[in-house]
Amino acid sequence: MASTLRAQLEELYALILKERECAKTMAMDELLHTVQAKNELLRSLQSVTKVAPEDRELAVAVREENRRNAYLFWASLGFIRESMSFFRKELSPVSYGAHGATVRGRSEGMLLRGRI
């Protein structure tokens, strides 16, 4: 573990960049290890109240890269939700009610049940 604040920020910056690369390449095992290391480092940084002027630029870069990752994960989650919604609609059987109107059943779909 790095001892000075600057070394910890540099390590955090490297972990954030590695986290993004793991997410882009779908290296899930490596991503989980990276996230765990990042969380441990963030826990050790919680007690920091002041950042030296010479370290502020690095701290801002860490914050911006972390925001980029957050946006990447948010956008990915949105894409996954959209895809699952599409497949639920496609896999849900269409049935008709007593008055001839279409009635959608439960939207679990065969994909989520493991039948495909």
Results as ranks from 00 to 15, higher is better:
115 R>P: 00
68 R>T: 12
37 A>S: 15
8 Q>K: 15
88 R>Y: 10
12 L>P: 01
86 F>Q: 15
63 R>C: 08
107 S>W: 02
56 R>F: 09
83 S>D: 06
79 F>S: 06
5 L>N: 04
86 F>I: 11
92 S>Y: 00
27 A>L: 00
87 F>N: 04
99 H>E: 15
51 V>T: 03
9 L>F: 05
45 L>W: 03
48 V>T: 03
102 T>C: 02
36 Q>D: 09
21 E>Q: 13
106 R>W: 10
30 E>D: 02
115 R>H: 08
112 L>F: 15
45 L>R: 02
110 M>D: 07
76 S>W: 05
112 L>V: 14
46 Q>F: 08
31 L>V: 00
69 N>D: 06
66 N>I: 03
84 M>R: 15
40 E>K: 12
115 R>V: 08
9 L>S: 03
85 S>T: 14
71 Y>I: 07
10 E>K: 13
101 A>D: 09
74 W>C: 03
97 G>V: 04
88 R>N: 12
29 D>T: 00
41 L>Q: 14
78 G>Q: 10
48 V>E: 01
29 D>E: 11
56 R>Y: 08
4 T>M: 04
83 S>Q: 13
96 Y>F: 14
35 V>E: 12
115 R>N: 07
56 R>K: 15
68 R>V: 14
11 E>M: 14
69 N>A: 06
14 A>H: 10
21 E>A: 10
93 P>H: 04
44 S>V: 09
114 G>P: 10
43 R>S: 12
69 N>F: 09
10 E>T: 06
53 P>W: 03
53 P>R: 05
52 A>Y: 02
107 S>N: 14
91 L>W: 07
65 E>D: 05
98 A>H: 03
27 A>R: 01
61 A>W: 01
82 E>F: 11
113 R>Y: 11
82 E>C: 07
69 N>S: 06
78 G>C: 03
23 A>I: 02
62 V>P: 11
35 V>A: 14
11 E>A: 14
60 V>W: 06
10 E>C: 07
113 R>G: 09
102 T>W: 01
95 S>A: 06
92 S>I: 00
91 L>V: 06
